[in-house]
Simulated assay, not measured.
Amino acid sequence: MDAAHPRVLGYLGRALSLELTAVQQYMTQASLLEIWGNAEAAKRFREETVEELRHAEKLVQRMLSLGVAPAASQLQPVAHAPDLPGLLRHNSAMETELINHYAEAVRFCVQIGDGENEDCFRELWRDEQSHGEELAIWLRQLGGQPGPGLDRATF
């Protein structure tokens, strides 16, 4: 086990919290979309749930390899909206937060010469950038406008 800079450990812990927040959000929104009768969108959100869970697992493995007990410090509340475009806008903001976090972590690892953790953060950064692009495309395909069902209950 290699000793990691305390700030790198902080980036790992915060990343775990953000990834588990994403898992919770996508899972909840998938169920909401199912209630709304949008099985296709629910399926896509469930796929995102699995992808974010894989990211969380990668972080847990990385932390364990560094001799650190994984602990997500704080999950953010699930964002909701009355329609799919609204959900996508919330998810885009969440992905942007992840992208920015990983970019900052990569910069710090480069600065201190921590190539192993840099590689880990860089891979996650690229994945999140891809997710963000996919969400932007999906939102544009929907016209970026609120869809039917503005009177739907959320939670």
Rank of each mutant, 00 (worst) to 15 (best):
M1G: 10
D2Q: 07
D2N: 07
D2L: 09
D2M: 07
D2K: 08
L9T: 14
G10K: 14
Y11A: 04
Y11D: 07
G13L: 08
R14M: 11
R14Y: 11
S17T: 14
S17H: 11
L20Q: 14
T21S: 14
T21L: 07
T21D: 04
Q25D: 15
Q25Y: 06
M27N: 13
T28G: 09
Q29K: 06
Q29G: 08
Q29W: 13
Q29R: 14
S31R: 15
L32N: 04
L32Y: 06
W36I: 15
W36T: 05
N38L: 15
A39G: 06
A39F: 13
E40R: 11
E40D: 15
E40M: 09
R44Q: 13
R46D: 10
T49F: 10
E51C: 07
E52F: 08
R54K: 12
R54H: 13
H55Y: 11
A56Q: 12
L59G: 03
Q61E: 13
R62I: 11
L66H: 03
V68T: 06
A69R: 09
A69E: 10
A71N: 05
A71I: 09
A71S: 10
A71T: 06
A71E: 09
A72T: 09
S73A: 12
Q74A: 15
Q74W: 06
Q74F: 13
L75A: 08
V78H: 05
A79G: 14
A81W: 08
P82Q: 06
P82T: 14
P85S: 04
G86R: 00
G86V: 01
G86S: 02
L87Q: 01
L88S: 00
R89A: 01
N91S: 03
M94W: 00
T96M: 03
L98P: 01
I99K: 03
N100D: 13
H101E: 02
Y102E: 01
Y102K: 00
A103Y: 04
A105W: 06
A105Q: 05
V106P: 04
V106M: 04
V106S: 02
R107A: 13
V110M: 05
G115H: 01
E116L: 07
N117E: 11
F121C: 02
L124P: 03
W125S: 01
R126H: 02
R126E: 00
R126F: 04
Q129R: 09
S130M: 00
S130R: 05
H131M: 00
H131S: 02
E134F: 00
L135S: 02
I137L: 05
L139V: 04
L142P: 00
G144L: 08
G144N: 07
Q145L: 11
P148S: 10
L150T: 10
R152E: 07
A153E: 14
A153P: 08
